[in-house]
Amino acid sequence: MTFAESVSHGAILLGAIIGVVTYLTWVERKFSGRLQSRIGPYLVGRPHGWLQPIADALKLLSKEDITPAKTDRFLFNLAPIWVVVMSLLGFAFLPLTINWVLVNIDLGLLYFSAIGSLIVIGVFIAGWASNNKYALLSALRAAAQMVAYEVPLLLSLLVPAVLAGSLNFQDIILAQERIWFILFPVVGQISGITFLLAALAEGNRIPFDLSEAESELVAGFNIEYSGMKFAYFYLGEYVHLLAVSILVSILFLGGPLGPLLSGGVWIAFKTLIVFLIVLWIRWSFLRLRIDQMMMLNWKVLVPLTLGNLLLAGLWVSLSR
């Protein structure tokens, strides 16, 4: 690709992500409403409130932007930008069909997880720069959680890479032509489930949203943010969630592979399914305590994923 081409492709991808994410909030509200025997947004844009996300965006754009007096202004303004940029950067390496990927390199998986590990710094800065004790506590919690869950996340990410023998997303997809990795006996299911759990914890979603914990910490590290800066954190969270859903569909569900329809349709369909599973988990479970969460991580997930990786390595080396 030439320079101009890659810039225009990047711009298209960026616009598409923002659009999709805006409507994912609508999907979430509708879906959670149905789970709880409600209707969800209905009035703005009949039928079924399809204009609600636009209205929300306009509201956030027109809100007053408040910067509290004793904050560190530079870091306070940097944090939301950092979170959004790092969440969006990961998309550069995700293939959306077999051939359409913005940056096609051998180490796509490594780069994706490397950039994902930078989000936590933004959360940290936000909590610190707000000069608010709840925000700082929440940021500390979030950081401890994200750093801890990074271990099982990466270990379970490695299993598809080991099975495919490559860190390139395209090779991983093509290796699933015979069988999706989630259907791979034992190894696939364990890594798929642990990956989803660890990713939920990394994205601070229920049942792992301790950094938010409204009842203890008011609202979390973004408590002092308002208007568009708050929206940036929200956007970052959803973009990250979308990236995780796409990643699950690529690594475990065969991504764009499927009969009849084109690759893009299949990957969108699978991503939507994964996203709905995440929502289902979110609206069905209670929040864990911090000690339960750390115990789940270090005593269950880490040994499990480590053993699973060993098993996958054994399988590959024996079947070669």
Binding site: L110, A114, S117, L118, F124, W128, A139, A143
Partner: peptide
């Protein structure tokens, strides 16, 4: 590796220690 280890790991540790 630079991004994953240094920017992702070591800087996070440094920030942790500072806080």
């Amino acid at each position: 590796v630079q991004i994953l280890l240094y920017a992702g790991g070591i800087i996070t540790l440094i920030v942790f220690v500072i806080l």
